[in-house]
Each structure stands twice: as C-alpha cells, then as structure tokens.
Design a binder for these strands. Structure first.
Lengths: 253, 253
DNA sequence: CGTGACATTGACTAGTATCAACCAAAGTGG
DNA sequence: CCACTTTGGTTGATACTAGTCAATGTCACG
C-alpha cells in the first residue's frame, strides 16, 4: 500500500495536545485500526486512549499477565514472542506502525511484546474498547477483518515452520518482508536490485523462522554465493533475483 | 466444556424438514457460531443456509478457489491443510462438530479442507452472511471471539513447530487433544488412565506436527516404553502419566 | 485367506544444531 | 585519539535429531 506510506511520510509530527488531537494527527491514523473510523468516532475513542513511550529493549507485555490493555503502535517496531521455560523463544511476528497488539487474548496475554527500538504506543483499556464497540460497530468489523488476516498469515507461517527447508524459510521471509515494506508492485515480486532493510538481528530472524543464527547466516551466505542477493551490510540486502527467490520461497523444485 | 458434550449427546437426531428446523435442532446449535444467537435469529439465518453431506476423503474446499461459502460442521471431522507444489503438506488443524471453516479468507480460500469421514456441513453464502451481520451484531462479535481464539491456538502451534522437539510435539498434541475431547477437568490435566481416541492417521499427525510418520511412531513408542502411555490399538492411547506428559509438552527440562 | 492400507522398527543419511574460532563495527575510557 | 571491550555476524568442524529407505508387522475388508 504505497498510499499509506505516502500519508505516513506526510504526518510526521505527532501532536502534543490532548488525546483527541493525538488520535486525529496520529501517524498510524490511516493505517491501523483507526482507519475504519470517522473523525467524530476518533475523538470519542480518544477519550479512552493514552499515549505511552517505551524504551528500546523493554518488554512491555508479558505472557500470562492479565490483559488489561489493547495497543496500537504509532511509532517503532515490536517483536511479539512466546517462550518455553528453558529459554527457547519463538517470535510470532514483527509488528510495525499502525498494527496493534492484544488480539490473541483470553483474560491473559498469550504472548510477550518487546520494543525493538524506542516505540510509541496508543493504549486502550480493553473494557472501554468493548463499550466503544457498541457505539461504533465499524470498529468491530474492522477488527474481525484484521484478525482473519492475521490468521491467514499465521497459517502461512505454520506451513513454513512445519515443512520448509532453511533456504525456503529465509527466502520466504525476504519476500514477505519486501511486501510488507511496500517494495512489491501489487501482489507481485519486487523489482531486481530492490534494496531491502532488515532492522532485526539474526537472532530475531532465527527465532522467527525456527532456525539458529548460524543457519540463517549460512542460508544468506549461500544466496549471496548463488548471486540471488547482495549483502554488504548485515542489515540490508539487495534482491538481485527476486523471481528466483520467490520460487524458492514457494517451494518450487 | 462438558455441558456442550451433554447437549450434543441429547440432540442426536438431525431434523429432515426445512432449513430453519435444521438450524434449531442442529447438533452444533449450542457449540459453534450459532451459540450466540436467539431462536428468532437462527430462523432468519437459516434462510441463507444449506445442508450438505460430504463423502469421506473428499476435498471440499480447495486452496486458491474463490471463497464463496462459509461452513459450519454439523457432523464429522475435517482436516484443514496447506500444500507446497512438490506435495509437502501441512495440516493447520483438525476441525470437529460446531467449528466452522472459511475464516482465513481474502477473496480466495487460504487453505484446503478434506472430510476425514463422512461429514455434514451447514453452508452459508459469504455475501448473505455479511447482510446478516447488519441485523445481528452478536454474530459478528461471536466470530471475532472465535477468530482471536484461533489466533491464540495458531501462535501456540508456531511455538511448537519452531522450537519444540519431536517428543514435546507429540506430548503437546496428546494434551491439547485430550482437552478438546473434554477429558480435562477445567483447564487441568486429564486423570491418569484416561482413554483418548485418535481418529486421525499417523500421516495426519506427522503433517500436523511437522514430523514424519516414522518419527511420530517412534515418539509414541518411546512414551510407551517409558510408561507414560499405553498403546494397544494405533487409534487409542491411555494416558498413564498425564502430568508428566503435560510437563514434557510445556518444555520442562 | 489374501490383499492393501496403515503402523512399527531398524539401518543409514542428511540437514540443521552445537561448539568454537574468528571478524567487524560500535562504543568506552584512559 | 587510540587500545580495549562488547555485541553481533560469519565461517568451520563436529554432533545429533529427525528424515529417508527398507523390511516387517497388523488390521480391516472382500
């Protein structure tokens, strides 16, 4: 959605006034869950919203904690993850501006969330949100759409984790990440030479793809050796043969 | 939910009259998406519903096909899966009575569905369903709850696929399957000696857990050897040490 | 009783994890 | 301003879990 990107770059400066002004001028205004609402509805919603800033590296949602709040990300990126008692971790997703946190909840949070850099959040009391539903069914409709979309993404990821090889996983990630960063012309493949930033660490990638950092590194090196990508800095790839990458990602022989 | 099980066993005989009668007497009436509706609402909804029977082994939803219908299962079990071009398959879930199909959809189905035995379905035109939403917001609310619950389950499964060992995966499956079959006292662990039917084949289990049939078989054999389960018939286990199984499933050292 | 599908078990292999060394970039402090 | 440390990334050697290939066993069904 290049349109959304445009809008984002326009609405850079976040307001400093009351909450209503915050919501109306929010840089996530046209991307996330507020997209479905009119300005009147926004200002109503704003009464229950609070802006918070979270420092880099801070885990601001802990799995098992009572799920009091619903969050919408207004700036920065967030890792969403689950852990096993011995420390094994799995990242279920990287969430960015306009996306929100707190859907998969049943009383307690079913996941933890950590700020990847400094993050700005818009926070709603879940109880208040339910009251808002009564007034603005459009919001509920919107959340259902988002939830079903996330379900689709989750099922794709299960196929990846259950049945794809290391190379296929990394290729799949590069393709979906390119799409997410709006480098793909309408559902297609990025153009050859497309530059793609990778803000996350190799540990993040490994925990997201069900691999180790070494295997992620080796897979990327193999792609580089095969001329599929260029990799000068660890946090930026050039997609030299995106079509080939897409084929690998899809599991083509 | 033992209450639901009770109701199910009472409402055994499915009506043969008009659609409204079908819905009112449906054995899934109190379990699935219709649970949120009054009898009046049900009869309204029924106008758009069709009953269909699907033969064992039939793939009645194909990934990529236009998603015209929304389904609710009134009898039998369904495998939901995704495939890669070379035949690799991943089962995202086993769906039973009262559950429904067609949530993770964006124009086209994002999954395929196959009848495990003979299956009875209640089918709704998606378009009609959206109209019903306008009349009965309760239905939409209900679907949002179901979608978020499925999201939680999907995220648990991602942790399993990405980070758990073969033994842990099989133990996890046994525990969630026991819970699903209402063999667990309110969120706890099944009682020792609990009998658990496994209607699916080893191939299904392997494709669900991201393993091969041999590894599933070996994991079960190892559990049997260790006295955790008894396994006289391939499609029935006795949970001898459910607490130990639960610990393994949770990834305890 | 024979057939075929499914399951188990064993021997061997392969892909990924583990362990370890090395490297590069970014701080940090004298 | 430059050694020193820290953090993150790459690469190599080796180990191990789970996959592959193959033989055998079991059960349902005609």
């Amino acid at each position: 959605m290049p349109e959304a990107a445009l809008r984002r770059s326009v609405a850079i400066n976040v307001a400093h006034g009351n909450a209503a002004a915050h919501c109306a001028d929010c840089e996530a205004r046209h991307i996330g869950m507020c997209d479905a609402l009119t300005d009147d509805e926004i200002s109503f919603l704003a009464r229950t919203a609070q802006r918070t800033t979270v420092a880099a590296g801070k885990v601001f949602i802990e799995e098992q904690e009572p799920a009091a709040y619903f969050y919408n990300i207004s700036a920065g990126n967030v890792r969403v993850f689950k852990s096993l008692p011995d420390g094994r971790r799995h990242i279920t997703g990287f969430m960015g501006v306009g996306q929100f946190l707190g859907l998969d909840v049943a009383g307690s949070y079913a996941f933890s969330a950590e700020a990847m850099g400094e993050v700005q959040l818009c926070r709603f009391h879940r109880k208040a949100l339910h009251e808002v539903f009564g007034e603005f069914p459009a919001l509920e409709r919107r959340l259902l759409n988002i939830a079903t979309h996330e379900l689709t993404v989750a099922h794709d990821q299960m196929l990846l984790l259950g049945r794809k090889t290391a190379q296929e996983r990394v290729a799949s990630f590069l393709m979906t990440w390119a799409e997410r960063n709006e480098h793909c012309p309408a559902g297609g493949v990025p153009k050859p030479g497309q530059k793609l930033p990778l803000p996350m660490t190799r540990i993040d990638l490994a925990d997201y793809l069900g691999l180790t950092i070494e295997t992620v590194s080796r897979s990327l090196s193999a792609m580089k050796r095969d001329g599929l990508i260029a990799l000068d800095h660890a946090h930026e790839v050039l997609l030299l043969k995106p079509q080939r990458l897409a084929d690998i990602a899809a599991g083509e022989a």
